[in-house]
């Protein structure tokens, strides 16, 4: 497991990370959210032994990253921000170099390199210099070097940044396909990524841990969570519908926009069923002819803003 206790980092007077406490167990895929400059990358640099903390400790399966750095680093696969690589090398020689450093030689080295080339679909660029590769390929080379030794801890700093939707999908599938015994930490500011791959989310801002829960729980914090949107043709008088709905005890408030009603529930009301029955009983499906009716999921963007800026969503 990863134990982070009282972790702090100061740059001069500026505090980048303040008293961070966190335990991660195998099987957890942690989404590390926060605005730019929140301290995400700094934390990852400290987890991987690149940067020394100003205070506190990080232990990777019992190995302190400061006092027992090399043993800790053997367990970690790391993709630094921007996926830096020795650009003058070819994909193959670069991955070969990483494999050698990771202690593989001969046939085992060859096998490991071939495996990650297949896994990350790099076969077309094996003999190409990394400097000539597109951003997507570079990112995949970076991921390939991170997983070449099948690490039990995988730390990925913005793994899908700059990738197109297909490539993002591929990277996410890869992360999800990793064995259940691993700990994966992904930093990102793409919120959809969190719901797509993570089973735990933390939000930090200005170096402080602000939220720690599952993506589902995070969605629940959104005012949108459990709301129902109903679409109508533009010529329907929505104010009348709105007035009718607001009288329901399960409805908290109704928002009216062009051809769209958004109905917010009180507390834990199951609004969709309530509204469906109401429309059905009052013949409104025939009279108002709604074109669509659907349950809203929480909007992570709102929750994110709410938590990191303290604004009401």
């Amino acid at each position: 497991m990863i134990e982070i206790s009282h972790l702090g980092k100061k740059f001069g007077d500026a505090e980048a990370v303040i008293n961070l406490n966190l335990n991660l167990v195998p099987g957890e895929i942690l989404g590390f959210l926060g605005p730019n400059g929140a301290g995400k990358s700094t934390t990852m640099k400290m987890l991987t032994g690149f940067m020394n903390p100003s205070s506190g400790h990080v232990k990777i399966f019992g190995h302190d990253v400061m006092s027992d750095r090399i043993e800790a680093q053997k367990l970690i696969g790391y993709l630094p921000e921007g996926a830096p690589a020795y650009e003058e090398m070819t994909t193959q020689s670069y991955l070969g170099f990483i494999a050698e450093v990771r202690g593989f030689s001969g046939l085992e080295k060859k096998k490991r390199v071939e495996e990650v080339i297949v896994k990350m679909s790099l076969d077309k660029v094996v003999h190409q210099k990394i400097e000539t590769l597109s951003k997507g390929f570079k990112r995949r080379v970076g991921l390939a070097q991170a997983i070449i030794h099948d690490p039990i801890v995988l730390i990925l700093d913005e793994p899908t940044d700059g990738l197109d939707p297909n490539q993002k999908h591929q990277v996410r599938s890869l992360i999800k396909s990793l064995s259940k015994e691993k700990i994966v930490v992904i930093s990102t500011h793409i919120l959809e990524e969190v719901t797509a791959v993570c089973n735990r989310v933390i939000i930090i801002s200005e170096g402080k841990l602000l939220s720690d829960c599952s993506p589902h729980e995070l969605e629940k914090k959104s005012a949108f969570y459990g709301a129902v949107s109903i679409e109508f043709h533009v010529d329907v008088d929505l104010n009348a519908v709105s007035d009718a709905l607001i009288s329901l005890s399960e409805v908290d408030k109704v928002q009216v926009a062009d051809g769209l009603l958004t109905v917010y529930p009180v507390a834990t009301a199951k609004l969709y069923t309530v509204l469906y029955n109401f429309f059905h009983q009052n013949g409104m499906f025939e009279s108002k002819k709604p074109t669509a009716m659907y349950l809203e999921k929480g909007k992570l963007d709102d929750v994110f803003r709410q938590i990191t800026q303290g604004d009401a969503a």
Partner: peptide, 14 residues
């Protein structure tokens, strides 16, 4: 400059 230092220093080498 290129950031590879971060890669190099996080590989398990003295």
């Amino acid at each position: 400059k290129s950031g590879t230092i971060e890669l190099l220093m996080t590989l398990p080498m003295t």
